[in-house]
Amino acid sequence: MSERKIRVVVAKPGLDGHDRGAKIIARALRDAGMEVIYTGLHQTPEQIAATVIQEDADAVGLSILSGAHMTLVPKVVAMLREQGAEDVLVTVGGTIPADDIPELKRLGVAEVFTPGAPTDDIVEFLRDHVAAPA
């Protein structure tokens, strides 16, 4: 089994500047031994997909607190698929109303973490669900 660390892109799509959560997650994943690439703010879906592919990431965490998740998440998922990166695990975090979660999962989001989710749960989820590198 390879020693390769899990590579995660933490991304902030859209225009909102609420990066507290994204930065906490990025740091918690890094502290848990993962390779973390944080995109910074105000990323377009195109930029995020490009980062995921360029960084050869295993997973991407999208942090959205702007209410624009139903516009932005499907775009990121579609772009990853178009570019042959459909095996990248996509998770979403932020203020996501419960009613929207089934639709996000139907689109291919592996899990949605809402306010109050412990960082340990997120670390564990990634460890359990990122396909073991070949």
């Binding site: 225009l15 909102d16 702007s66 209410g67 624009a68």
Partner: peptide, 22 residues
């Protein structure tokens, strides 16, 4: 809303999905 805070008009491509939301 976020596009107004960022100086983008509502018809800008980057405003999509955020017009009048927050």
């Amino acid at each position: 809303d976020m596009p107004t805070l960022m100086g983008l008009d509502s018809d800008h491509a980057r405003s999509l999905g955020e017009v009048g939301v927050e």
